[in-house]
Nucleic acid binder design. Structure first.
Lengths: 210, 210
DNA sequence: TGATAAAATGAATGAAAATTCCATCTTGTC
DNA sequence: GACAAGATGGAATTTTCATTCATTTTATCA
C-alpha cells in the first residue's frame, strides 16, 4: 500500500522530470515564445493533455525549469564555500563551480541568460519572485565570503555586495559570450583560473596570496 | 515633376522612419514577441494597413531596425578612426564611441541581447548574413588600426584580428552586463577610460603611451 | 475476471494577433 | 472641378497556439 504509493510518487516525479528535460531542449533551441506546448509534449512523448496534468501552464514549466537549476547551482555554491580553505581559495572555487555548472548546462544557460531580462513578468510574478530570491541568495553567499576575506585581510576594503555583483557579472558575461559564439569545444572552465587571478589581483590587499 | 517625386520620396522615407521609431519604442518596452502590430501602428499613428505598406511583416520591421543600428555604429566607428590622431588615441575613441552608442541605445540593445535567440535568422539567413558582415567590418576596422599601431611601435606585435576580436569581446561583455543588470543610471561611458587603460596597458610596447 | 478508479489522449475550443482586403479619402493633373 | 492613381483606415479573415474535456487506455484489486 505504502510501497505502491511510493512507486507512484517516484513515477510521477520521473515523468515530470522528463517533461522538464524536453522543455529545456525545446526552449534552448527556439526560445520561450517560439516553443509550443505541442512541441514540448511531442518531445517528451506525451500528449498535450498529459503535460497539463503536471504543469498548469507553459509559463509554469519555464519557471520550474529555471527554479530547479538556480536551486541546484545555489546548493553547489554552498557546498563549495563550506570547507576550511582560505577565503581566496574558496573564491576560486566559487568561480570554478559556476563555470563548470554553465559548462554542463549550456542549453539551459542559453535560455536563462538570454531571456531572463526579456521577462519582466518573471521577476514580478509570484514564481519569478522565488527565482529572483534564489539568485540574490547566490549574490549574498559570495558577498559574505568577501566580507570574511576583508576581515582576514585577504581582500582590501570594498563593498561586499557590489563586489559580489561585479564578480557574478563578470562570470555571467564570460558565460554569455562563450555560449553565443558557440565555438568548437573551447572549455569554459579553463577560463576560471585566469578570471580568478583577474578578480583576486584586482581585489587583493597588497600582493595576491596564492 | 522630378521635384515632386523627390518630395514624395522624402515623405515616404519620413513615414518609414516614424514607423521604425515607434516600433523601437514599443519593442524596447515590451520586447519583440509581446509587441503587437496594432500597438506599433497606434504608436506610429497609422493604421495597420498602412504599416504593412512599408514593411511586409513584423519581423521585417525588427530586422530593419537592427540593420540600421549596426550600420550606424559602423559609420560612427569609421568616423572615429579617420583623423590624424595617434593610434592609441584612436583606439580610445573607438572604445568611447562603441560604449556611447550602447548607452544611447540601451533599451533597444536589451531586446537584441535578450531575444535574438528566438529568431531563426541567425548568421545563416540572408539578413543575418548582412548584419554579420557589418559586424565583421567593425572587427576589421579595428584590426587595421592595430596593424597601424604595430607599425608605429605603439603596440607590440600581436595578431591584429585576434586582438581586435578580443577588444570587441571585452566591450561587448561589458555592455551586456551593464544592460542586463539594469542598474540605475550608472554611466557606461565612464567605464571607457578604465577599459582603455586595461587594453592599452596589456597591449602597449613597453610602457603605455598616454 | 471484471468492476472501478486513475491516468493519458488528442481533437476541439477559443482567444490573441498577424496579415489581408477593399471601401474611402487625398493628392495631383488637366 | 472632375478624374485617376495612390494612400489610408480599420474591419474581416486567417493563423497560431495555449488550454480544455469527452473519450479511451491502463492499473488496481476483490
Amino acid at each position: 500500500m505504502d510501497q505502491r504509493s511510493q512507486r507512484k510518487q517516484r513515477e510521477y516525479e520521473a515523468r515530470r522530470e522528463e517533461i522538464l528535460l524536453a522543455a529545456e531542449r525545446m526552449f534552448s533551441q527556439h526560445g520561450f515564445f517560439k516553443t509550443s506546448m505541442a512541441e514540448i509534449a511531442e518531445s517528451a512523448q506525451f500528449a498535450m493533455g498529459t503535460v497539463y496534468r503536471f504543469f498548469k501552464s507553459k509559463e509554469e514549466i519555464y519557471i520550474s525549469l529555471v527554479e530547479a537549476k538556480v536551486e541546484e547551482l545555489l546548493s553547489l555554491l554552498k557546498e563549495a564555500t563550506k570547507g576550511g580553505a582560505s577565503t581566496p581559495e574558496k573564491l576560486r572555487e566559487v568561480i570554478n563551480v559556476k563555470l563548470a555548472f554553465a559548462d554542463q548546462n549550456r542549453d539551459f544557460f542559453r535560455i536563462y541568460v538570454s531571456e531572463w531580462s526579456g521577462f519582466e513578468w518573471t521577476v514580478k510574478s509570484a514564481f519569478g519572485d522565488r527565482v529572483w530570491k534564489k539568485y540574490l541568495a547566490q549574490i549574498d553567499l559570495v558577498a559574505n565570503l568577501i566580507k570574511e576575506g576583508i576581515k582576514s585581510k585577504d581582500f582590501r576594503k570594498v563593498n561586499p555586495k557590489d563586489t559580489s555583483l561585479a564578480l557574478h557579472g563578470m562570470l555571467n558575461s564570460t558565460i554569455y559570450v562563450w555560449i553565443l559564439q558557440a565555438g568548437p569545444k573551447e572549455s569554459l572552465v579553463d577560463k576560471g583560473k585566469w578570471l580568478g587571478s583577474l578578480f583576486l589581483g584586482g581585489i587583493g590587499a597588497v600582493t595576491t596570496k596564492s
